[in-house]
Design a protein around this nucleic acid. Structure first.
Lengths: 247, 247
DNA sequence: CGAGTGTGTCCCAGTGAACGGAACAATCTT
DNA sequence: AAGATTGTTCCGTTCACTGGGACACACTCG
């Protein structure tokens, strides 16, 4: 029963990376005995590990995660460019993909000077409230935007866009300019500029952003940097689509 | 049925990151219809994705992999030290844990000057043929060594130890010195020096190595570097075991 | 063109395995 | 020492999974 396994594995989060069988059963709404048995099987296969009575995600999950084709290809494609961007701007560089109404961070290169951003590789953020998210949505099919708006827009940061029509306008502007700007929409004191990576077939595959603390980051200055960097990638993808074998 | 799910996910490797349902069924020894159905469920939960008719590991696996407690804690513990080691030696730095008879690479910092080593984060190597593996085995319970030898020692590199007794002697020596040296045992032209990270309770939790191409790497020179770096970590773990919350 | 091979999906009957309530032992709390 | 945790095991019921086969579609080759 895949859905039970999914429920069990998904119960582990950044905040709760370890828990016991009872807690697990409670969160999943499953019988303790069921969870106990499935957990034993998962441990058997290395998907979970025991630490005393607590359970943690196992090494096998880590191994498989490193094999996931999409993140791997994207990283391979963009690491060099991302490193250049960090080098040139001194800020933090993000790469993310769109998943449902959220973005998932695939790679992060933290600024060497500024304090660390709270973002985490593998972590999620609502798409409408982030630079990468807006860049992705602007070039995604309309239906994706509809779904995001339908799910509701809430205040993530001090200046998050919480109106559907305003968001649509913003996305149109981004689509026209190819550059997404975000100021304090995702969190207090944080700004960023993002641009979309467009695959050979014209669909968005990911987005890259430069972000930092508003006091030290001039978005109008770093904007062109991300944009040109990403345009280079897009051209590369157009001429040599095999750079992303598993799109 | 967890074991079928495990079989399906495990069919994806670094060499074969994408395949169709039929191929998958063949590799797992399952009926095509069964695989088709399970695959549909896995896609539902984001564990797999479609790329045309081919399947690839999904984003959810990547997300979960990044949450796995052991790799996360170890990375957090050792990144700084690893960076220092690379900086100081200019060589490639590896961190790995022991899993059954193999090592799994948790983090790699590639040399900035030398050509890339073939190792991959999340990748596996036979424990007996690598520096990190020997360092881990030397401090692991005897049963682990027995199991490794029982599974057989084959020629991985030009100078791999293929005799059980020789390996045992070598491990004793390593245990005494706290430093594992490896010259062309894992691959042609590759040498390395490794040392074990010992947890607060006295068990090995991981190993760190400096490796490079024999022509440019003097193991007797980098040996002390890894060793002192790791000893620092061990002392830290002894005084503040909470540095590795999920052991 | 049509036979031949490949692909992935769907259907369905039979059965075997998963479910979960309950009883259990073992720890911690109170 | 009673009470409330924890995780594991047992076992009868039942339900969902299995897999053979039929199906539609795509591609290749004579």
């Amino acid at each position: 029963m895949v859905s039970r396994v999914a429920a069990i594995l998904s119960a582990f989060t950044s905040e709760t990376p370890a828990m016991g069988v009872s807690e697990l059963a409670r969160r999943c709404g499953l019988a303790k005995s069921t969870v106990s048995r499935i957990v034993a099987e998962l441990i058997e296969h290395g998907f979970l590990e025991r630490k005393g009575n607590d359970l943690i995600l196992g090494l096998r999950v880590f191994e498989l995660g490193e094999l996931a084709a999409r993140p791997r290809d994207l990283r391979r494609l963009a690491v060099a460019v991302m490193a250049d961007l960090r080098q040139a701007t001194g800020q933090t560089v993000h790469m993310a993909v769109l998943e449902d109404a959220e973005v998932v961070y695939i790679a992060i290169m933290h600024s060497r000077t500024s304090p660390r951003m709270p973002s985490r590789v593998g972590g999620r953020m609502p798409a409408f409230a982030t630079g990468v998210g807006k860049a992705l949505l602007a070039f995604a099919p309309m239906s994706a935007v509809d779904r995001v708006i339908e799910k509701g827009l809430w205040k993530v940061g001090p200046r998050t866009i919480t109106d559907g029509d305003v968001l649509r306008d913003e996305l149109l502007r981004i689509r026209a300019s190819g550059l997404a700007i975000e100021r304090e929409e995702s969190g207090e004191g944080i700004s960023c500029a993002a641009a979309p990576i467009i695959g050979a077939d014209g669909t968005v595959v990911a987005a890259i952003s430069i972000s930092g603390f508003s006091d030290y980051l001039d978005v109008s200055q770093v904007g062109p940097a991300v944009q040109t960097a990403v345009l280079g990638l897009n051209r590369l993808l157009k001429t040599r689509p095999a750079a992303l074998p598993h799109l």
